[in-house]
Design a protein around this nucleic acid. Structure first.
Lengths: 339, 339
DNA sequence: TTTGTGTGTTTGAACGTTCAAATCGAACCC
DNA sequence: GGGTTCGATTTGAACGTTCAAACACACAAA
């Protein structure tokens, strides 16, 4: 690296240098970048050439300071829950980063400070330091304090998972109930008449919705539906060992399907259409590694991320749009465990 | 929200208001925040009170623009690889955010633009827009182009996973070979004398190191060691069905351990100390959900994240430190599959 | 008293950009 | 030919902070 350059501190090109190179003023370069329609075509071309040749990119801090737009969205990572390690997080985050990137936004990750003081303080800090234009909240619970807090602070936000009736309806969610209903129809179509269900953590809204969808559809089709009393292998075995043995089992998540596999085998049965059919939820990479491979419900993570970013930017720009919830369908991926 | 406030646009408190409230100048407030030792104790107290009462936080953009420090680290997410969905990513990211937060840094997530143009362009954009002080690169491969590129661009960076001999040694990694060696010793201690190994993707450095550690330790202990010819169930079954049946199997990842479980069962054997002992790698949540629960190698993700952040900030500040690689030990978590 | 030394605080300037208003030409209209 | 309108471009100011230098004051040394 040559030493004697007379560039500013960190050696980055500034808008002024581009302007000089293109023979125009600061503001014209700025316009060429932010509002090209205001610039005459030939000037635009000249500016763009200069930008390219100098490798110019506007300094994001300067831009933010002046314009107020941070071009950054904050993602509040859920706190750890070893009982329900959210396997969708990784995949969702990637989708979110891509969706945000497509709209010229970056994603800033943050979490409540470990040590569990006020988990909401993290939101305040981020907002007070004006580091983001809006927030994406995931794993939203019933009466989630984060929602109320974000609304109170007045920061634009969207939620992956529906919010309560009294709260702003800026959410996107999958149709959990419809998805499990589709699973039931799939199994019914294969001839199953007695179907078991294994869920967990009924206080988690998505888990509750899956179970509700399962029960409703089973009743609608006149099937016999039974639910495991506890989320463990023994509870599933009790059902499988009973008189009216289910010929299929729906699990509320892919990890729970593992317990069903184990229970089926422990009862001397086989997983699959011939023995006991099994389905999961989330379509994690695990599904393809199981034997037999696990039928599961694939979440439309990319579509969810796109919808969330869209709604969030609407708020950032428009301001007072009331906002309605959006429910997206999930797709059933049939594999050897049921088909 | 009251309308007639005469605060600036987004209603945020500025340093000037704090200064007025505390009866001092801008700069004294700034000093109280950034260099408290320069401020007389009683003044400091007055400023801090004003800060607290007004809920003041410095505007990060203004701060960055003036000082140059972005207080933000970029994390370049690995590109999707459906064959090797990196299960550590989620847990590592959380650890990284915490470690960065402890040092007053945020984490900005970014990925190469989907559609696979130049994957390195994402780095350039982030650096040119001066959005981060440094980069964290994960899943580093042999001769990874990202390393060379980051070094060329001159941006401070650290790598999770070791870099090549000609490259800057700013890396932290787990001792993959030592860890599998420990697994072998663990199994040998249980009396196993013939041990199988199931790996995958030898071109991935960590996978190669695990296998090497396995083979070296087995030879050192005079054990018979065999490696599955292919990363699938059939290859494991061939070994289990052969004359010299291994009594234990080491898998290069937790997901691969699933294949071993399946092969063991397909051969009519049982997983566990009595039948065929099995171990995995990563200690993902999956381990506790398997039956029997899977012995695995737990990665010290928090320690890795702390070390990475430390080294990165050293570079950001100090500048020209040469940098040495750091290898951290991983801990064996023994569960029912082997003990 | 003068000079020097140091501590604590204030003032002016600058970081790089975009906003808002001003300027400049060319075209248009009566 | 003088005014009006419109599009393209430039100029001055401002965003909120920290840097660098200047300043005020107390105290010790000469």
């Amino acid at each position: 690296m040559p030493e004697g350059t007379r560039r500013p501190r960190r050696g980055a090109t500034t808008i002024e240098e581009v302007a000089r190179a293109a023979g125009v003023s600061r503001q014209t370069v700025s316009n060429a970048l932010n509002a090209p329609q205001r610039v005459r075509p030939d000037t635009l071309e000249r500016v763009r050439t200069a930008v390219r040749e100098l490798g110019y990119q506007p300094d994001q801090s300067a831009r933010s300071l002046r314009s107020g737009a941070r071009r950054t969205l904050g993602y509040l990572a859920p706190v750890d829950d070893p009982l329900d390690p959210n396997p969708l997080m990784a995949g969702f985050l990637e989708a979110l980063v891509d969706a945000a990137g497509a709209r010229g936004q970056r994603v800033l990750l943050f979490r409540p400070a470990p040590g569990g003081t006020d988990p909401l303080a993290a939101i305040d800090e981020l907002v007070a330091a004006r580091q983001v234009d809006g927030l994406v909240l995931a794993d939203v619970l019933r009466d989630d304090p984060r929602i109320a807090h974000a609304a109170r602070v007045g920061v634009p936000f969207v939620a992956f998972g529906r919010t309560g009736p009294g709260e702003p309806q800026h959410w996107v969610d999958i149709a959990n109930d419809t998805a499990t209903a589709a699973v039931v129809r799939h199994l019914a179509g294969l001839g199953h008449r007695r179907i078991g269900y294994l869920g967990r953590a009924e206080e988690l809204p998505w888990m509750a919705a899956r179970r509700a969808g399962f029960l409703a559809e089973a009743r609608r089709l006149g099937l016999s539906a039974v639910t495991a009393a506890r989320p463990d292998v023994a509870a599933v075995r009790e059902l499988l060992g009973g008189r009216e043995r289910p010929t299929a089992f729906v699990a509320g998540s892919d990890l729970l399907a593992l317990d069903v596999y184990e229970a089926v085998r422990a009862e001397g049965l086989a997983v699959g259409p011939a023995g006991v059919a099994v389905t999961g939820f989330h379509d994690t990479p695990l599904c393809r590694h199981l034997h037999p491979a696990l039928t599961s419900v694939r979440l439309p993570l990319r579509a969810i991320a796109v919808a969330l970013v869209e709604r969030l930017l609407d708020q950032v720009r428009g301001g007072g749009a009331p906002g309605e919830g959006l429910e997206l369908p999930a797709e059933l991926v049939v594999r050897a465990s049921s088909g």
